[in-house]
């Protein structure tokens, strides 16, 4: 690939697995858990974070030499807040129902630790193009976990995907429900998200023992 050198490609692929922001770096847990009861909300959240992190990383990286280090947190917060306001207004204009579902969690992208974490760790020390790739890579890693959690919670909890009934009709007893299958209401309640993420971490670390933590 001429466009991306090998080093640049790693910026995108690393956060997808071995340096995943949620399961390894422990960043951005808050919103990852709260909105994953439906696949659609998870996907929209992932796209919003991708926009904010990609654009924010570029802006911070362009300004990195003129921001006084003492007030950098406030500067970073203002940049994020501006981008999040754009996301929020766009969602309200074009996807009003969904913005009601996401509610305050759109605003909470501001304090999503992934964003501040990547600003501090990467954008303040690297050029705009590499920062952009880092932003996209990390938000993809974040999005992958969100979509996996959303997929299992919606499939097992409501028997639907993107709102379409894929397992048959639970009231008419068609499809899988004819065999006596029931939706698992446990997957809908908030604590289930924590347990699903816990299991994802378990699977990931079993496959790659290098990631196992000391006690």
């Amino acid at each position: 690939m001429a466009l991306l050198s090998k080093k640049d490609t790693n910026l995108i692929t690393d956060p997808l697995a071995d340096n995943n922001p949620i399961t390894i770096q422990v960043l951005g847990i808050c919103s990852a858990l709260a909105i994953t009861a439906e696949l659609k909300a998870s996907l929209v959240m992932a796209i919003s974070v991708m926009f904010v992190l990609g654009a924010g990383n570029v802006v911070i990286s362009l300004m990195r030499n003129i921001i006084p280090s003492k007030i950098r947190i406030i500067v970073q917060l203002i940049v994020v807040a501006t981008l999040v306001i754009i996301v929020d207004q766009v969602l309200k204009a074009y996807a009003y129902e969904l913005s009601k579902t996401l509610a305050v969690f759109v605003g909470l992208i501001i304090t999503n630790c992934i964003i501040m974490g990547r600003f501090e760790a990467f954008a303040l020390a690297n050029g705009p193009w590499r920062s952009f790739l880092d932003g996209i890579g990390n938000s993809l890693g974040y999005g992958v976990i969100l979509v996996i959690v959303g997929f299992f919670r919606e499939l097992l909890g409501s028997g639907t995907l993107f709102g379409y009934p894929v397992l048959g009709d639970p009231i008419m007893k068609t499809g899988l429900y004819a065999t006596g299958y029931e939706n698992n209401g446990f997957m809908i309640i908030p604590p289930a998200a924590l347990i699903v993420v816990g299991i994802i971490i378990w699977v990931q670390r079993s496959r790659n023992p290098a990631l196992v933590e000391e006690n």
Binding site: I189, I195, G198, I201, W202, E214, N215
Partner: peptide, 27 residues
């Protein structure tokens, strides 16, 4: 720390699952 947690679950994983169980309790 004194319990024998399966190695891949140590640290973050078990904390998530405990928090989930506490959440169910708080429900």
């Amino acid at each position: 720390r004194y319990s024998n947690v399966p190695a891949p679950l140590r640290g973050l994983g078990i904390t998530f699952i405990i928090t989930g169980l506490m959440g169910i309790g708080f429900q």
